[in-house]
Design a binder for these strands. Structure first.
Lengths: 205, 205
DNA sequence: TAGATTGTTAATCGATTAACAATC
DNA sequence: TAGATTGTTAATCGATTAACAATC
């Protein structure tokens, strides 16, 4: 077991988790070869990745899927619940609030805020849209550490700053813009146009 | 100018495009140092990336933003329009259909299909939800090459296969599952839970 | 010309993978 | 024991970056 897990390994762990839960439907154990096939990566890669976790398989047998999944969840920090706030109650924000898939990994949308007074007070999936100026209180009350930005690009940097001021330290940005992360705040970005752009590139290559 | 553009470079190009359009608001030219600052990458990285494009800056001056942006768009294949079909008219699918941001890079949602007869016929952002069994005709009629999967995970592999059969060769998968790509089809995956998982990992590190 | 910044090389760094001894 | 598969090393591969000559 080596200590610092490479970023590339971390990025693959959730993928392994997904594949393992598929395989678990029919089997209790699997080999690195089998998982490699399902995840589309090299089997040596998989064994190396797992060696960082201190997760031990059994030579000649393979990995116990339940054990391994549990190890991965522990390493990623998916053994607790994370309250999440969504900023921006437009189509995308509301779609995310309605999307139940976050809960399986412990992410629970506990608040949705919007700057538009006309949206404030409206219901979304059991929650009520709250005003942006209550953000500090909302983050405080719910001990929120993670925010998702579903605002237009033009409002995204302001939103980051306000989330940071309120005490949120992890942000997932869905707005199509590169943001500056305040000190102590980490931002990940998902840009669907970028993904389509990369698809387009490969079509023409 | 070397020929094969590394995948890592390709993945950064859309980011540069975003940053350049921000910078273009106030300036017509920029240096690799300035863009590096905005994009959060090393300036040598940027110059190296651009050297693959055959895009030439001017020594002592920098890069012409309009020229450079146009080069990047050309390389990525963003100089034409791509008709896109969205499969799955749930919250996410409808949010994407409503989302206007794809059009700026030439991706135009021309059809939304769903398997649920109750949804078929309903309007979404000027389109009408069409039945899944018309997929081949729809893809044909609109010369669709790109599909976005916004179905539940359980329906995603079937959807890939049907899209592939219909002639779609580029797929963006938003369902939280690892899919097998049929021959000649490329799939990119965006998994928001995975992104949150990686955020969670870094919180606890 | 002097200052600035590119384009490119070469060095560094890190990630992937083949190979195989260890061992179930 | 024989067969299978891990865990790990060492080799390979590719990506990043420092450095600097070229040149605007």
């Amino acid at each position: 077991m080596k200590d610092p897990i490479p970023e590339s390994t971390v990025a693959r762990l959730p993928r392994y988790l997904r594949c393992l839960s598929d395989i678990a439907v029919s089997e209790a154990k699997c080999s690195s070869e089998e998982l490699a096939e399902a995840a589309g990566v090299n089997s040596a890669q998989i064994r190396k990745d797992f060696s960082y976790l201190g997760a031990y398989g059994t030579r000649g047998v393979g990995y116990d899927i339940a054990d391994l999944s549990s190890q991965i969840r522990t390493v990623l920090g998916l053994t607790r619940t994370y309250p999440v706030v969504i900023v921006g109650a437009g189509n995308l924000g509301n779609a995310l609030t309605n999307y139940g898939g976050f809960r399986a990994w412990g992410f629970e949308i506990v608040a949705v805020v919007d700057i538009d007074p006309n949206k404030v007070g409206q219901p979304v999936d059991g929650l009520t849209i709250e005003p942006m100026h209550d953000l500090v209180r909302i983050v405080d009350d719910n001990s929120i550490e993670i925010g998702i930005i579903a605002t237009p690009a033009s409002a995204a940097q302001t939103t980051v700053n306000r989330l940071a001021d309120a005490g949120v330290t992890s942000i997932l940005n869905l707005a199509p813009i590169i943001l500056k992360a305040p000190d102590g705040v980490q931002i990940r970005r998902v840009d669907l146009s970028t993904e389509l752009g990369i698809l387009a590139y490969h079509r023409n290559t």
